[in-house]
């Protein structure tokens, strides 16, 4: 890693690693410094993180419908396990 300050473009190229917490410590420090000083990048990182969180939160509404579950066990000819797993 060179010592020049990171540009916004470079920040965004690392956004996956940043969001997933997989950045090397040195790069992480530089990124955090940039984010403290650059409102735009901070907003992009925060709203991207929030986007993922929202999708994870609504996952719960797509549970397997009870009738679909019953027909699945019937088709597989398996006894339904008790649901208190």
């Amino acid at each position: 890693m060179t010592n020049h300050p990171l540009t916004c473009k470079e920040i965004l190229q690392q956004i996956n690693l940043l969001i997933d917490g997989e950045l090397e410590a040195e790069l992480c420090d530089q990124l955090e410094k940039h984010l403290r000083e650059c409102d735009n990048c901070r907003v992009v990182v925060n709203t991207t993180t929030k986007t993922i969180e929202l999708y994870q939160e609504i996952k719960g509404q797509d549970q397997l419908p009870e009738d679909v579950r019953k027909r699945l066990y019937l088709r597989l000819n398996l006894p339904e396990p008790r649901r208190d797993l």
Binding site: L12, I15, T48, T51, L54
Partner: peptide, 8 residues
């Protein structure tokens, strides 16, 4: 991720 962020 970026596309969804953009849409949202």
């Amino acid at each position: 991720r970026l596309k969804l962020r953009e849409l949202l």
